[in-house]
């Protein structure tokens, strides 16, 4: 029953995304795609930060890996000769379909996550957060200096605009579906157990390190896919695109939505993508003394985050998923419906 509803929603989302490509103008299509990409980022970050309990700040690094991999692999050979003339010959003559570029980017990110995670996940808590932040710096520096492949600070532009809402939502549904199934499997249970009590988990036979590493690797792979999609949506990437600001935005989505809840991450991503976009229009239409209120959107979002953290410190969804929240809501409503009819004895 529940499964069928899930498939139904997925089909509906995909159909709407496909329809939007015919019905909406470029701007709206772009906003829609950005929402889907941010959902992928938030849901994949939630796997480490919310589910297995390692607060990573390195998400932008894996996104950059995906973006650059996809960019270098999909750029038409003719353009590579002009834009990236110093590319190794085999890479210069390679032109890979978008799907394969995304998958290869994901595999590369997973490999790097495994290599980096093995030492870094020896750390815990704040130490781990700062170390993953270091990873982001390293990737940025590599992108800045590996001139033949990345063109350094100039970045790569003129990428083929492959990313349409259909691509973005297809990838998003795949991401959410896979991560949902991972979380609702023995591996996911082990991740949550590790988050709740690491020693307790180890003494019940959970391979703690392997479990934490799995969360880190899977999260990295999907961040890379989001990066690839993003590169082919914006069609231009520079090392500066993958800064701390980007990580911060994704972290905010996860925290506002509710750490540990997939539904929460989706909600957080939608909210924190749409809201700035809507408020931007208010900024220009609201004018005080002929001066548009630039910056209003950031202030409103900052206040919103403050409000959520004060009144719902667990985020919008807490740790719960949508079905559980809906079930509780329904119970409460049926209880209210009975309340206005007190029994005659009372």
């Amino acid at each position: 029953m529940n499964h069928r509803i899930g498939w139904l929603i997925a089909g509906l989302v995909l159909a709407l995304a496909g329809a939007s490509q015919f019905l909406l103008n470029d701007y709206y299509q772009r906003v829609l795609s950005v929402i889907a990409i941010n959902i992928i980022l938030a849901v994949s970050l939630n796997l480490t930060n919310g589910i297995s309990g390692d607060f990573s700040l390195g998400h932008a690094a894996f996104m950059a890996i995906g973006a650059y991999t996809s960019a270098v692999l999909t750029l038409p050979v003719r353009m590579k000769a002009i834009v990236l003339p110093d590319l190794p010959v085999w890479l210069g003559q390679l032109e890979v379909p978008f799907v394969f570029a995304l998958v290869l980017g994901a595999l590369l990110a997973a490999l790097i996550a495994a290599l980096v995670g093995t030492p870094v996940l020896r750390l815990r808590g704040h130490y781990l957060s700062v170390a993953t932040l270091g990873l982001m710096v390293i990737v940025q520096v590599v992108a800045l200096n590996w001139q033949p492949v990345t063109r350094g600070a100039r970045g790569i532009n003129g990428l083929p605009p492959f990313t349409t809402p259909l691509w973005a939502y297809g990838a998003m549904l795949l991401t959410v579906g896979i991560i949902w199934r991972v979380v609702h499997s023995p591996l996911g249970r082990a991740m949550i157990a590790v988050r709740e009590d690491e020693l307790g988990a180890a003494c019940r036979g959970v391979r703690v390190f392997r479990t934490r590493l799995a969360a880190f690797i899977i999260g990295a792979a999907f961040a890379s896919i989001a990066g690839g999609l993003w590169a082919h949506l914006i069609t231009a990437i520079t090392p500066a695109s993958f800064s701390f600001l980007l990580t911060f935005n994704v972290v905010a989505m996860v925290v506002i939505g509710g750490m540990g809840s997939i539904s929460g991450s989706v909600a957080g991503a939608v909210l924190l993508t749409l809201l700035p976009e809507l408020l931007r229009r208010v900024e220009t239409s609201l004018a005080l003394g002929g001066q548009p209120l630039y910056g209003l959107s950031q202030v409103v979002i900052a206040l919103l985050m403050l409000g959520v953290m004060i009144f719902r410190p667990g985020g919008l969804f807490g740790r719960e998923e949508l079905p559980a929240v809906l079930a509780r809501f329904q119970r409460r409503r049926s209880a209210q419906r009975q309340a206005p009819h007190p029994s005659p004895s009372s």
Partner: peptide, 25 residues
């Protein structure tokens, strides 16, 4: 006591049980 406090009682037992069986992602 070291339980996985916010997990259900059933899931607590499942975590311990699953260590005895193989898992393929």
């Amino acid at each position: 006591i070291r339980l996985f406090r916010r997990m259900s009682v059933l899931d607590n037992v499942k975590v311990a049980l699953q260590s005895t069986q193989p898992f393929r992602l």
